[in-house]
Design a protein around this nucleic acid. Structure first.
Length: 953
RNA sequence: GCGAGGGUAGCCAAGUCAGGCCUAAGGCGGCAGACUCAAGAUCUGUUCUCGAAGGAGUUCCACGGUUCAAAUCCGUGCCCUCGCACCA
């Protein structure tokens, strides 16, 4: 295909030249700087058009700022920290089919796949692929500054260690315990990437409630809803199950043997001392601390020893399971199947109202059981549905009844916390975790929850730190603007963050080498590292690994340069130059990411900057965008509509890919990759190239009003473009630079009958090329050189927005002419007449004067009657009637303006040739009421200032 | 439930903060015409309804209000998307 070859030829040519001339390599100089970044991507796959969308936003803005005279730094790096790479490598080692297919889909040949069983190979392979793809899409990146993360890069590693050392000093890294999903066989935490099933399941917290039996032992029941403890009527135990009797600090606890094992992993020491059959306890009485009374222990088959403790406190008012179990038992009792003593107890049990939930009343369990027509305990699915429904409703909307001790009137969520913490304090309860759903490790073992002790946290819950993060938000700009509210909220709800792992790639905690820093925690400050990475990289020749004093000096200005330089084996002036380079580039001017990073990375970065740097080094702006869709539907591999960047590049080339991305959308909404638009781009670009050449070759000459209109119009579009570029509104900018500019040129060309003014023409060609350069830089270089320039368009300085002469009059005139043509077209269309002659009647002179008086609010009666003397009363009435209508439509101002600035008749007469061509008929222009007027249908009476009458014959 | 955003023509989307040439930009799709043997591509026109005179009518989630004037401001309701984490 010719055009595809054309595209490749152009793009390869310019990319080579940019590279050879080092034009995107940024070094400090006397210019003002602009530092923009994209959060480095994770190296477990190749970029798709969603990555490209976000990254291109940085590129568009970087290229634009470069053309506004800024010294722009746009660096890139490769994130390798964490579990996914290690997990995927392991899957390859195991020959897992799905993983092998993923590798094939990324274009990795079968005989090479084996090499990916080593995680380190990923960190070599994918950065190379990413760089090459990012280069071929034309990213204006300073590649000298690239690096990979983890201990595989000792310099970066030392930077992260320095960061954590400083955070620890400020007491922002703290020790605590933390529940994780855990594989008992492998003895490791099992992240989503290591799971065979159960992705997304997290530890959930059960409260263990103790019930004292008369013999002094405790039944230990597990509940997710401690706030219902005031509604207990009895305790459920499974008669067929063997329960463990375990020693806990001198107490005897009765609970399922599974639970003993689980609690052991969660720091609750239990020593099993014997077994007891469930049925042996049925019928006993157990003391409830919340009810302050003894309640009976009753049999229930739904009490599952694999879940919780296998013992359940019964709250038939709010738990559908309890309610239906109670009904079952009552049925057995009345049919005589139950022991008579038990029957007597059962008959006395009634649900107790404790919570009012809108729409469910005070006995939601009864309500939902009846609604779903649940008959007995065996209907597991329906019960699950019932549980889901009222747990959610009850938790969010429910309120404790006012008479309840301690928690009367509280919303359910607060009551839960209060009851739980009160009971824990009094030793009446304990905590146990279970996975929220079944999780199976890749080793086929069912996972449990383990409470990891001595876990390290970043103290994002710390109030003082939050305050600094809020301060950072208040100093920043956001695109779109409402994001400040979003970030403030994220900062408020953020709690301490477990920041280390035992597995995966990464940097070790400097004071505890057994821990690896987790991937969202090692990437919060590295933007600063870019400013000097060039001097640290292995290619720079310095092989040493910096120590903490080095970073203290570079980033914080602390320490004696002489000493620091000596310690690190470099020259003092080199060290000082690095410090200067950091100070030159920092703070970060812009960081752009997808909206998925708002709740973590972007906020973490604010916290970390706020912790370590002074205010004036905090980030200055964040841009956030949505997730890309393809022709309207979500991008997903399984649905078969995912588009890898290199695939798009093969199909369309860089410029069209870039343009389609720019046009995909802006703001926070999900952008849309429009395949049809992409298809139409080549035509647009080649047209742009063709007329740029021909416009630049035109002879200059005196400019007329139409030329002035054209220059005014492109001046206005240019201002609009600048505004949009400043606001990261690239779709609007493309519309102005490409589509609106082209439409303006079309009208101009028609209006001038093809005889365009050379000065206006080359102004247009030059301006449009500059405006489009951030989006389609390759084609614009091509055009830029074709129209006689030898410099790179990427470094050309854009004109000042107010440097264009905008003539309001010229714009008014052309609008007026267009209106006249539209009116005639409308008449022709409605009447179906094939026009032979068109008569246009401009208004009588008195009308224009009268309109001026009206507009300016002059009430001078004499002047008014003077104007209309000799004019028929009918005509005057008609004029005022029309005036009222036009006023109602809000068009009076513009009419008056036309009438004041324009001799309508003379102007239309000067454009008769054009009108005749446009309207394909003879055109006669007359003033209403003038001598010798030809007005066969009497239409001239319709004339109004700024709106001539028309007759079509 | 809390937090953030949103609901505009066949679809996508601008306009809303600063009410008035707003029947509402632009793109896509559709329709018609030109070119062509034909198709595609391209170009031109058109795309809420009615209309043989540039007009009228009805629209911007729904209902109510403010105003000479509301897609835009205020109130109420309905609906949708995203986040609520230990993971990139």
């Amino acid at each position: 295909m010719d055009e595809r070859n054309d595209i490749s030829r152009i793009e390869e040519k310019w990319q080579k030249i940019w590279d050879e001339k080092h034009i995107f390599e940024a070094n400090p100089d006397g210019r003002k700087k602009y530092f923009a970044t994209y959060p480095y991507s994770y190296m477990n796959g190749l970029p798709h058009i969603g990555h490209a969308f976000t990254c291109l936003r940085v590129d568009f803005e970087s290229r634009y700022k470069r053309m506004r005279g800024f010294n722009v730094l746009f660096p890139f790096a490769f994130h390798c920290t964490g579990l996914p790479i290690v997990a995927a490598a392991a899957r390859i080692r195991d020959g897992e089919k799905r993983q092998l297919k993923i590798m094939r889909d990324m274009g990795i040949p079968g005989n090479e796949v084996e090499r990916f069983s080593d995680p380190v190979y990923w960190t070599e392979y994918f950065p190379k692929r990413w760089e090459s793809i990012m280069r071929s899409v034309g990213m204006s990146i300073d590649w000298r500054r690239k690096f990979i993360t983890t201990s595989l890069n000792p310099q970066y590693d030392s930077f992260v260690k320095w960061q954590f050392t400083r955070l620890k000093e400020k007491d922002y890294v703290r020790k605590g315990s933390h529940p994780v999903i855990w594989c008992p066989k492998d003895s490791i935490p099992v992240g989503d990437h290591d799971r065979l099933s159960g992705e997304g399941e997290t530890p959930t917290e059960y409260t263990l409630l103790k019930f004292r039996l008369e013999d002094g032992r405790f039944l230990v029941a597990a509940t997710l809803r401690p706030e219902t403890a005031y509604g207990q009527t009895n305790v459920w135990i499974n008669p067929t199950v063997d329960y463990a009797v375990a020693d806990r600090d001198g107490e005897k606890w009765i609970l399922s043997p599974d639970a003993v094992g689980k609690l052991d992993q969660q720091g609750v020491r239990l020593v099993e001392a014997g077994r007891v059959k469930g049925r042996e306890i049925v019928g006993a009485m157990a003391y409830s601390y919340t009810m302050e009374a003894n309640i009976p222990v009753l049999p229930a088959v739904f009490a599952d020893p694999a879940k919780g403790t296998g013992i359940v406190s019964s709250v038939p008012s709010d738990s559908p399971d309890d309610y239906i179990a109670l009904l079952d038992l009552k049925k057995s009792a009345s049919s005589g199947k139950l022991d008579p003593a038990l029957s007597k107890i059962v008959s006395k049990i009634h649900p107790i109202d404790i919570i009012e939930t809108p729409g469910y009343g005070t006995l939601p369990a009864k309500r939902v059981v009846e609604k779903l027509k649940i008959i007995n305990q065996d209907e597991k699915e329906k019960l699950e549905e019932a549980r889901q429904e009222i747990y959610r409703e009850g938790f969010y909307k429910g309120r404790m009844l006012s008479g309840l001790r301690d928690v009367g009137g509280l919303p359910v969520d607060r009551a839960r916390e209060k009851i739980k913490s009160d009971m824990l304090k009094k030793g009446q309860a304990a905590v146990m975790y279970e996975p929220s759903g079944e999780v199976v490790c890749r080793c086929l073992t069912k996972c449990i929850v383990k409470v990891v002790e001595n876990q390290w946290f970043l103290a994002y819950g710390d109030e003082g730190w939050k305050k600094r993060a809020h301060a950072a938000v208040s100093r920043m700009n956001f695109y779109p603007g409402f994001l400040d509210r979003q970030f403030d909220n994220v900062i408020d709800w953020l709690k301490d963050w477990a920041c280390v792992h035992h597995t995966g790639l990464g940097t070790s905690l400097p004071w505890d080498e057994n821990w690896k820093i987790e991937s969202l925690s090692d990437s919060t400050l590295y933007m600063a590292y870019y400013t000097i990475s060039l001097h640290l990289s292995r290619s720079s020749g310095w092989k040493g690994v910096p120590d903490d004093s080095f970073y203290d000096y570079i980033f914080l200005g602390k320490g004696e340069p002489q000493k620091v330089a000596a310690n690190n084996g470099i020259r003092k002036n080199e060290l000082e130059a690095m410090r200067r380079e950091f100070l030159y580039w920092y703070p970060l001017d812009l960081r752009v990411s997808g909206k998925d990073l708002v709740g973590n990375h972007l906020t973490f970065a604010l916290f970390n900057h706020a912790a370590i740097f002074p205010e004036d080094q905090w980030p200055k702006a964040y841009g956030v965008n949505g997730w890309i869709t393809i022709s309207g539907s979500k991008m997903s591999k399984s649905a078969g509509n995912s588009l890898m960047l290199h695939t798009a590049l093969e199909k369309y080339g860089a410029d069209i890919t870039r343009l389609t991305e720019a046009y995909a959308g802006e703001g926070f909404d999900d952008p849309n990759w429009d395949e049809d638009f992409a298809e139409s781009c080549w035509r647009r670009l080649s047209q742009m190239r063709e007329y740029a050449s021909s416009l630049s070759a035109l002879p200059a000459g005196r400019k007329d009003d139409v030329d002035r209109w054209f220059i005014s119009t492109i001046g206005i579009l240019y201002r609009n473009y600048i505004e949009n570029m400043e606001g990261l509104l690239f779709k609007s900018a493309v519309k102005a630079a490409l589509i609106d500019m082209q439409n303006a040129l079309k009208w101009y060309s028609r209006r001038k009958g093809g005889k365009l003014n050379g000065e206006a023409g080359s102004m247009f060609a030059r301006l449009q090329t500059l405006m489009m350069a951030p989006f389609t830089p390759h084609m614009c270089e091509e055009i830029w050189h074709a129209i006689g320039n030898s410099s790179s368009v990427c470094l050309e300085i854009l004109p000042e927005p107010d440097s264009f002469e905008v003539s309001e009059d010229a714009i008014l005139r052309e609008g007026y002419l267009e209106d006249v043509i539209n009116d005639v077209d409308e008449i022709v269309k409605v009447t179906g007449i094939k026009p032979k002659g068109i008569y246009i009647y401009t208004c009588a002179g008195w009308q224009a004067d009268m309109l001026s008086l009206e507009i300016s609010g002059v009430k001078d009666r004499e002047r008014r009657s003077g104007l209309t003397s000799g004019v028929a009363k009918a005509a005057v009435d008609r004029f005022f009637k029309k005036l009222a209508t036009e006023r109602g439509q809000g068009k009076l101002q513009i009419r008056a303006k036309v009438a004041e600035t324009l001799d309508e008749k003379a102007f239309l007469n000067s454009s008769v040739e054009f009108l005749e061509k446009e309207l394909k008929a003879k055109v006669v222009v007359q003033r209403a009421g003038e001598e010798g007027m030809n007005d066969p249908a009497g239409r001239s009476a319709n004339a109004f200032p700024g709106r001539p009458a028309i007759y079509v014959e």
